[in-house]
Amino acid sequence: MPLHLKRLLLTGIVIISLFLLLKHALTPESFGQYGHYRGNSMNEIAALPIHFVGNNSCVSCHDTIVSMKSEGYHSDLSCEGCHGAGYKHVGDPKMEQLIKPDSREFCAKCHDINLARPEKAVTQKELKEHHSDQKCVKCHNPHQP
């Protein structure tokens, strides 16, 4: 075999070996442990701090509001859906205050007219016309709208 072909073959072998070495070095150790992903990611995700605490955590302090909400149209909604993740607030209720959204844009996320949203499931209003100069919460109590 001529020299240049030997060197070509050698170059090919070097490139393939380099690729295999790279593949070995760059594939995470736990890859494929459970499926086509990094096995360790399961434990890493499980070890992350919990951000949402659930409605039951709210009842212990805000029982009147929770019971009011349970009788209204928003009974199915999670408290943290509007007020944000509550894990910090539960840990330190005085220092860590939750958000109280009261803008028209916030209500519009669900209640503005959207053809793709079933009218029967969510009340929808033309927000540009429906008392456009006032905040929704002035007339509607969000916990019992």
Partner: peptide, 19 residues
Amino acid sequence: LALGSDDISPKSLKLDDKL
């Protein structure tokens, strides 16, 4: 780029052409 080879004999060129 020539992989350090200096071989341009008719035989090797013919082989190059074939490959």
